[in-house]
Design a protein around this nucleic acid. Structure first.
Lengths: 193, 193
DNA sequence: ATACTAACTTACTAATAGGTAAGTGTCAAT
DNA sequence: ATTGACACTTACCTATTAGTAAGTTAGTAT
């Protein structure tokens, strides 16, 4: 992709993590790049176009993360947490997950973006469920029959934790992550000893 | 409190659940009430004043919920879920938790509101932790030593779930709630049979 | 009747938003 | 040398935002 165009997408993505889709303006981006508002409009005629480009980038990133984890040389037990950590590490302490941010603005997004956000939301849970399925196959996970439901719990809590973290401080995210790990491990150990 | 004033607070609260603090305007409220924008400004000179009034109301509601649950004639095992359900039932399918909504706009809130949101965020977790402590005292909860950490997990996942629900559909919230209940009960049963 | 107050309306401001039209400078291909 | 595409800028438009100042109306107390 052209350099400037992807630069703008990256900038918009950071702004979405920090402020949300509705709360960043073309002028914000223009000032950060040292150009005029109209220059951003040249690359992305409407804000919706830029928003959709960001969604596409998020989708690509999600797919890449999943494929990377699937063939990573680590224990399948660790894969769910590695999947989550890698994605969460891209989010600063003063930011939230970009998908959460888009969900927060959901009622005001143009329809095409709503569809994309919906699709991404489901995809992320499904990918984690697939990763959990592998552990289950190996007999290492019995905490729940329903990996889809368990994946939903994990993703929900991580997203919630990242939003809380920005308000009440860094610790909160790792507390939640540790609790999740403890639940899986604790249960597993109890049943197999 | 005067009728109109509390009516405006209620309306602002609903707007925050639906749209967020930044995305509702005095004109929105005015149109819904059939009055002019300036009339809202008469009751709440600045938007921040209205925002703080909403925060106060949220705080009162949270305290009331906690006190009601503490002295409710139900098993202490059920109290955490009753606490959560009662609060979640006030949130429509097209809305999110008002506190989550304020957290999403956190970086743009006036400082006084940021402080209030931070306080509320901590309070809610602490109240749930207290409810969990009672179960622990009765020996009915051994899933975790740290009720504070477990309360953090529960609140995070519920908040995350409510935000997902609006995007991907009603089921998601009850899936997460069921998973949480299953984790507590499952673990308890395993250890005591 | 007068004065006072609560709850407004009318009419405005300045700032910011997304978006557009027309023009400018730079470069590469012909 | 000319054309044409690319990446812009200048200058504008309309709508919306929070907020303000001044006037109006209805009811209440004296």
């Amino acid at each position: 992709m052209e350099n400037r165009k992807s630069q703008i997408i990256e900038l918009a993505l950071r702004n979405i993590r920090e402020k949300g889709y509705l709360s960043f303006s073309y002028d914000d981006l223009a000032k950060e790049l040292g150009v005029t508002k109209a220059s951003i409009h040249y690359h992305f005629i409407k804000k919706e176009d830029l928003g959709l480009a960001v969604c596409t980038k998020l989708k690509e990133g999600l797919e890449k993360s999943f494929l990377n984890i699937e063939q990573a040389p680590i224990n399948s037990d660790d894969k769910p947490w590695e999947f989550i950590s890698r994605r969460a590490n891209e989010i600063g302490n003063n930011e939230v997950c970009p998908l959460s941010s888009l969900q927060a603005d959901y009622n005001f997004l143009p329809m095409a973006m709503q569809e994309s956000v919906q699709q991404l939301s489901i995809m992320e849970i499904d990918y984690l469920a697939k990763i959990l399925d592998e552990i289950k196959k190996e007999g290492k996970l019995e905490i729940t029959q329903d990996t889809g439901a368990f994946a939903t719990l994990i993703i929900s809590s991580i997203k919630g934790a990242l939003q809380y973290r920005r308000v009440v401080g860094e610790d909160l995210y790792s507390i939640v992550l540790d609790q999740l790990k403890l639940l899986v491990k604790g249960n597993h150990e109890v049943r197999h000893k």
